[in-house]
Amino acid sequence: MIVHPSPPASSALRQRMIEDMTVRGFTAKTQHDYIRYVKTFAAFLGRSPDRATAEHLRRFQVHQTQTGLQPPGINSAVAALRFFFTVTLDRPDLARRLALVRQPRKLPLVLSLEEVTRLLEAAPGSKYKAALGTAYGAGLRVSEIVSLKVTDIDSTRMLIRIEQGKGREDRHAMLSPHLLELLRAWWREGHRQGLMLPQGWLFPGRNPVTPLSTRQMNRAVHAAAQAAGIQKRVTPHTLRHSFATHLLEQDIDIRVIQVLLGHAKLDTTALYARVATSTIRTVMSPLDRIWLGPQDEARPDG
C-alpha cells in the first residue's frame, strides 16, 4: 500500500503549531525539530495527525522501539507530540498516552589536571588555547563559547556575560586571572591579524564577521587531545565536565557550581559527585571507625 503522509507542513495545522511555539518563545531549532517529529508521525500514520487515536500513538511508539530508535530520540518525539496534542489540538487525553523511555545516566568523562594541562598546551594556536581554556576555566558550553563577543568579557568585575544560554537565559560565569591572560594573549594576536572587529566576536571564524563554529571547536579539541597523547574521547564538553568535577573536589558548594554551570536543576549538577574521585577518597568508611583487632589464624582451641 502506498502511504501518502499528510503532515502539518501542507496545512493550516502546521501554521497553527508554529504560531503556538512562537508565542511560547521556542527557538527556531526547537520549532524545526518539533515539526519534523510530527511529520514523521504523520508519515507513519498515513493521514493527518489530528485524526490520530490512542492506539495509533501506541503503535507508533512500538514501531520506534522495533526500528532501534534510541531513548533520546523517542523522548524527543514524545515532547514534540505532547505539545502538538496538548497545545495545538487541545487533546491532552492523547498526550498522556505517550510514554517516556528511561535513559541510563552515564558518568561524564573527566580529565585529570595533568591531562587538561597537556591538552591546553597542545591546542593549535592562541585562539583555540583561549577557547578551550574558556571551556575549562569558566565551564561554558561550546555553543556559549562561540557566541561570546569581546564586550562580554568584564575584566573589572572578573565576569563573563553569557547571553541567551541554554534555556534562553542570561547569566554570568567566572573569569579567572589565568583565563583573562589567555584571552588577552589571543586578543593581541587576533588584533594583529585583523580578526578582532569592534563589538565583534571574541572567537571569530575564518571570516571575522562570523563566529567560530562548534564543528571547528570539536576538531580543535580532537587534534589537541591526539597531539597530547590523551587516549580518552575528548570533546569541548569534557572540559566543562572537568571544570565542575575539579571544583567539587576543591570543596566548592554544589549550589555554587550549579549557578556557574547554569543548571536549572540541582540533580543535574549532583551527577558530578559520582566522578569526584578525590572527594570520594577523603570520605572515611564507617568500617574504619571500628577496631576489630588482629585476627589470629589459629583456632581458639587449636
Score class of each variant (00 low, 15 high):
Ile2Cys: 02
Val3Phe: 02
His4Ala: 11
Pro5His: 09
Pro5Thr: 08
Pro8Trp: 10
Ser10Pro: 10
Ser11Lys: 05
Leu13Pro: 13
Gln15Asn: 09
Ile18Asn: 04
Ile18Asp: 10
Ile18Ala: 08
Asp20Arg: 05
Val23Cys: 05
Arg24Asn: 09
Phe26Lys: 10
Ala28Ile: 04
Lys29Ser: 09
Lys29Tyr: 12
Thr30Met: 04
Gln31Trp: 01
Gln31Ser: 15
Arg36Asp: 13
Phe41Thr: 09
Ala42His: 06
Ala42Ile: 10
Ser48Glu: 15
Asp50Tyr: 05
Asp50Gln: 15
Ala52Thr: 15
Thr53Phe: 07
Ala54Gln: 09
Arg58Cys: 01
Arg58Glu: 10
Arg59Gln: 13
Phe60Ser: 12
Phe60His: 09
Phe60Trp: 07
Gln64Ile: 11
Pro71Leu: 02
Gly73Pro: 05
Ile74Gly: 08
Ala79Gly: 07
Arg82Trp: 01
Arg82Asn: 06
Phe84Met: 09
Phe84Val: 13
Phe85Gly: 13
Phe85Gln: 11
Thr86Gln: 12
Thr86Lys: 12
Leu89Val: 02
Arg102Gly: 12
Arg102Tyr: 08
Gln103His: 01
Val116Cys: 07
Leu119His: 10
Leu120Glu: 00
Leu120Gly: 00
Leu120Trp: 03
Glu121Phe: 08
Gly125Cys: 08
Ser126Lys: 13
Ser126Gly: 11
Tyr128His: 15
Gly133Pro: 00
Ala135Trp: 01
Tyr136Asp: 08
Ala138Gly: 05
Leu140Arg: 04
Arg141Ala: 03
Val142Phe: 00
Val146Ser: 09
Val150Asn: 04
Thr151His: 05
Ile153Pro: 00
Asp154Gln: 03
Thr156Phe: 09
Ile160Asp: 01
Arg161Ser: 14
Gln164Ile: 03
Glu169Gln: 13
Asp170Tyr: 08
Asp170Leu: 10
Arg171Leu: 05
Ala173Arg: 09
Ser176Asn: 07
Pro177Tyr: 07
Pro177His: 08
His178Gln: 15
Arg184Glu: 11
Trp186Gly: 03
Arg188Phe: 01
Glu189Trp: 03
Gly190Gln: 11
His191Asp: 15
Met196His: 14
Leu197Glu: 11
Leu197Trp: 03
Pro198Ala: 12
Pro198Phe: 05
Leu202Met: 10
Leu202His: 00
Leu202Lys: 03
Asn207Thr: 14
Val209Cys: 05
Val209Trp: 02
Val209Asn: 10
Pro211Met: 08
Ser213Ile: 05
Gln216Pro: 06
Asn218Val: 00
Ala224Phe: 03
Ala228His: 07
Ile230Trp: 04
Lys232His: 10
Val234Trp: 01
Val234Asp: 06
Leu239Ile: 07
Arg240Glu: 09
His241Arg: 12
His241Ile: 14
His241Gln: 12
Phe243Cys: 08
Phe243Ser: 07
Leu247Gln: 06
Gln250Pro: 00
Asp251Thr: 14
Ile254Leu: 15
Ile254Tyr: 04
Val259Asn: 02
His263Tyr: 04
Thr269Asn: 05
Tyr272Gly: 03
Tyr272Ser: 05
Ala273Gln: 10
Arg274Trp: 02
Val275Lys: 12
Thr282Ala: 00
Pro286Trp: 06
Leu287Tyr: 04
Leu287Trp: 04
Asp288Met: 01
Asp288Lys: 03
Trp291Thr: 15
Leu292Gly: 04
Leu292Cys: 01
Gly293Glu: 12
Gly293Val: 12
Asp296Arg: 13
Arg299Lys: 12
Gly302Leu: 10
